[in-house]
Design a protein around this nucleic acid. Sequence first.
DNA 1: ACCTGAACACCGTTCAAGT
DNA 2: ACCTGAACACCGTTCAAGT
Lengths: 223, 223
Amino acid sequence: MQDEQRAERRREPLTKDVIVRVSVEILDAAGETGLTFRALATRLHTGAGAIYHHVANKSQLLTAVTDDVVAAALHDRTPPAEPAQAVRILMLDVFDVFDAHPWVGTQLAAEPWQPAVLRVFDRVGTLLDALGVPASAQFDATSTLVHHVLGVAGQYAAAARLAGPGTDRSAFLGAVATRRTTQGGADAFPFLDRFATTFADHDDRAQFRAGVDVILAGIATLR
Amino acid sequence: MQDEQRAERRREPLTKDVIVRVSVEILDAAGETGLTFRALATRLHTGAGAIYHHVANKSQLLTAVTDDVVAAALHDRTPPAEPAQAVRILMLDVFDVFDAHPWVGTQLAAEPWQPAVLRVFDRVGTLLDALGVPASAQFDATSTLVHHVLGVAGQYAAAARLAGPGTDRSAFLGAVATRRTTQGGADAFPFLDRFATTFADHDDRAQFRAGVDVILAGIATLR
DNA sequence: ACCTGAACACCGTTCAAGT
DNA sequence: ACCTGAACACCGTTCAAGT
């Protein structure tokens, strides 16, 4: 009986796993600015200082949270036999992580060679090995694909941060198009002007896929 | 006499240009955490609030500072006649901006489609047009190169932020290599393990150049 | 119009005090 | 050993008061 009351008043024991899980919930719901140690402590029914018994600091927490989400996304999938297609699917799986958790893009650039990046890097490299890319070119080829996905992730996270939940995306892209033509004369950005009309209804995922295909085509020439 | 004393005590008039210039100095000298409105105000011999008469907020200031540095780097160079070589040189010029100002990498991911990104995008696209890339493939090809450079910029900025002025780079990369093998069993990252020995003395610029070549090879197949 | 600088509403992090 | 929560040393931003 006493144990039951105890169980009611006590929350589940504070562990790093619980902190990481709740952090993901907060980040998904409230974005990058929403995750503070005070908000985390409130949600965990504890004090802000308690978190430091399980996590060294906020930077380490965010690294762990990012790796957790990326690792989960890369787990449950049997890759297709064709290696090039396996690379495409892997890359799109990573892209879809940004779609579900835009804050991941910011965190991947917060620390170099962090676990989540190593994880993706290793998976891509292993597939390129299976694809028959010469050993001497494997590292550079892998690096190209990974940096491409990191670049897209960064822009994607920035867009999500700026857009927020209730912003009109094509209105923003329209504003970008306007800014192009107004600053520095009419022909400041002649190339982009040619694509101004198709800018507003742009498909990020399709563009990312096209980029992966371009890089794969380049990798194929290394054979 | 009173006017002379007055003239001594007054600084040059506060303008956005001066604020941007001093911001670059602070960022280069003290890094991203060094740029605060208080530090800026001290250097400008004014109050923190005065800055808001010329700049809307810190985000807008950083966008302006980033565009200023990128624009300066892209100005003074006559491109070679061969378009593919011109792309390589342009990309390396952008890379060298990160080398001189590592904080640029962070800022390029702070806001989507910001002026500095549009600037690079337009230059790359114009060169790819000259290269003979079909119009239907120009946007995707340009996007691939730009996102690659953004991905590298982000990792580069993260490395600089972590390393600081007096840190041993190869020691850090050695630590990364160690972390790989210790977490999650010996074969957690089998691909990376094969490159562990060559990891410490890695040349970021050479790797970036290799990535550009891979993408250019892929773009060539679009012809 | 521009500047001042104290004040406000936050942060991450620390640490004496509790259990 | 783990937790508490006030306190510290910062931030960006605002704004009444000055010139």
